[in-house]
Design a protein around this nucleic acid. Structure first.
Length: 256
DNA sequence: CCAGACGTTGTT
DNA sequence: GTCTGG
DNA sequence: CCAGACGTTGTT
DNA sequence: GTCTGG
């Protein structure tokens, strides 16, 4: 799956790199600047969308800030005016379900996004299932040192009674699929990557979701894996040491 | 018709 | 154990 | 995803 | 919002 990741490219540079308008730095709630080696759920993250300036214009790529953890438009409003989040945080959405599930299907139609990152972390369970052996973290990244772009969905939410033109809370989720290749040794799910030639097709707000991309594995062949230290476990830790290779820890039980 | 749910992963 | 916070 | 918190009533 | 259950 994908529950923690690393980003070292700031939004302005990203926008330049992928020829997008930078709409991330203009808002007060933008992602914190500088490299972040420990991006966690509920934080503000940088995404890429395609939108129109005018209804009849061609859509253009835009870099935007969003809260990680999708809040459906129909989420209720709590007493303090925040969304009433019962149930789990929607940081991931299963590719197999996004077109049908009530929480995601509207976003799947016209609110698809990409979540750029240097790499992400997976924790491999060790020992017999059911026993509480510490998990081992791994870092998955592009073997060419370039960014990976994860398929995502986004949504807007306003408190009950708020004007239609008031600024909404914009949130997003990362789509997951079956793990394949070497990644399957670590975990049974992985984020859905989209390779550069497919970005525009994935993002097109005027076309239905592309089933081929949704069922594919995008940039799977670019992904490298290395074991890292448990420093990443605690989100207070944040530095380049989080992605440095660690001494392999034995995987117990399964191999016996 | 209205009321109520709507979601992930992992573990069992 | 289960929920919240980051 | 993992880490960390998790609490009442009454009195000051 | 939109679908399901009653």
């Amino acid at each position: 799956m994908c529950g923690r990741f690393a980003v070292t490219t700031d939004p302005a540079l990203l926008a330049e790199k992928i020829k997008a308008l930078d709409e991330a730095t203009q808002t007060s709630t933008g992602a914190k600047s500088g490299p972040n080696f420990n991006v966690a759920p509920t934080q503000t993250i940088t995404t890429v969308v395609k939108r129109h300036s005018e209804p009849d214009d061609q859509s253009t790529r835009r870099v935007r800030s969003m809260r990680w953890g999708l809040i459906p438009p129909w989420a209720k409003t709590a007493e303090d005016g925040s969304p009433d989040n019962k149930g789990p945080l929607l940081i991931n959405a299963r590719a197999e379900k996004v077109t049908d599930s009530p929480a995601f299907r509207n976003s799947a139609k016209s609110k698809r996004c990409l979540v750029p990152m240097d790499g992400w972390y997976e924790w491999r369970p060790n020992g017999e299932p059911g026993k509480k052996t510490p998990k081992t973290p791994f870092y998955m990244y592009g073997d060419d040192g370039e960014l990976l772009f994860m398929a995502g969905l986004w949504s807007t939410w306003r408190p009950k009674g708020a004007p239609k033109d008031s600024p909404p809370l914009v949130s997003c989720t990362i789509i997951t699929t079956d793990a394949a290749g070497p990644l399957a040794e670590i975990h049974d799910r992985m984020p859905l990557t989209i390779s550069a030639p497919d970005w525009d097709r994935w993002l097109d707000p005027d076309a239905p979701v592309d089933e081929g991309l949704l069922r594919g594995h995008g940039d799977l062949d670019r992904i490298a894996i290395r074991e890292v230290s448990t420093l990443v476990n605690n989100i207070r830790n944040n530095g380049p040491e989080l992605i440095e290779p660690a001494e392999p820890q034995p995987e117990q039980g399964v191999l016996l």
